[in-house]
Design a protein around this nucleic acid. Structure first.
Ligand SMILES: [Zn+2]
Ligand SMILES: [Zn+2]
Ligand SMILES: [Zn+2]
Ligand SMILES: [Zn+2]
Lengths: 159, 159
DNA sequence: TTGAGTATGTGATAGTATAACGTACCGCAT
DNA sequence: ATGCGGTACGTTATACTATCACATACTCAA
């Protein structure tokens, strides 16, 4: 798995590549990657952490890109709908996807100390949840999987 | 795993036993199982589905047990804190625990058609999430696991 | 009885999300 | 060029979720 969230890396490239990838994918699919949507994605990519809709809205407002909640929520809905961002239910907030465009079932590791969020890949057929669902005849279509704890950096710092 | 949520069962007993179990546990531990707390637990036990805090508050208000949000939230906090109820983050709502008192890591299966919620047991060490966390050195302390899909009853009804 | 700790009552407010309606723009068929 | 449908944005208002702050009341034990 990619450790992008916790490991040291070239974060400038991280942002540029993220935006470029989404830009390309929107072009392919004929989706409009508008200034508001682009800017919201950039804001989400700024840190590997989740941002609330109103944090984003504040930034948009400062930059003259829209000042009312629906502006932020619509851009976020667009990004989430097409798999360019995810909502972290536990935090009522949003984060840029680490593998934009690819069809995937994301899971998240949320550090309670530094708020960094890492995205992991999920396989819903495996593990006890998949077994329970299979036993019961429950058909899983989507899953929210959000683990909270201490990231390696914060754990080392504590020790 | 218990299929309590989806399978036919004696639901009257389900409620009585749930309340009795919590009552006993509170006695043991010296926690106050007050009328509001008892009533909120009963309301949660009424259906194997999640209820919003304001749904609960409406019922409490009708019954003269409190009419302001903090009354409901405080009772819910008590129940959640002691493991007698769980919050379903995806739905911003609450559900009675299926194994009250026992220390456990719950996972949920939420039917998108009938809104029934079943509680499953989780083992955080297993599966790809546990593997990812282990690889990264991330220490999982708690996890929100909420699968959405179709329960066996609704799937059969659809077919 | 008195006091510390806990639980409730109540009004106000913070934080999250959507409804509803109008306007602007774009690509396209007439 | 004109009109049209589709999509995105602007704006107001409102709904839904959750907490703060402070007063009051209860419980239990010293
Ligand atoms: Zn993703
Ligand atoms: Zn950390
Ligand atoms: Zn039952
Ligand atoms: Zn169902």
């Amino acid at each position: 798995m990619e450790a992008t969230g916790f490991a040291r890396h070239d974060h400038g490239a991280c942002i540029r590549e993220g935006v470029a990838l989404v830009d390309a994918r929107c072009r392919e699919e004929g989706w409009q990657f508008t200034p508001v949507r682009r800017r919201v994605l950039e804001l989400l990519l700024e840190g590997h952490r989740a941002m609330g809709a109103y944090d984003i809205l504040d930034r948009l407002r400062e930059e003259g890109l829209g000042s009312q909640p629906p502006v932020a929520y619509r851009a976020l809905d667009f990004l989430v709908k097409h798999g360019f961002a995810h909502k972290i239910e536990r935090l009522n907030s949003f984060i840029a996807c680490a593998h934009p465009g690819e069809h995937h079932a994301p899971a998240f590791l949320i550090c309670r100390s530094c708020d960094t969020v890492a995205e992991a890949e999920l396989d819903m057929r495996e593990g006890r949840l998949g077994a329970s669902a299979a036993d019961l005849g429950f058909v899983i279509e989507r899953a929210v999987v959000e683990a909270e704890g201490l990231c390696p950096n914060c754990r080392d710092a504590a020790a």
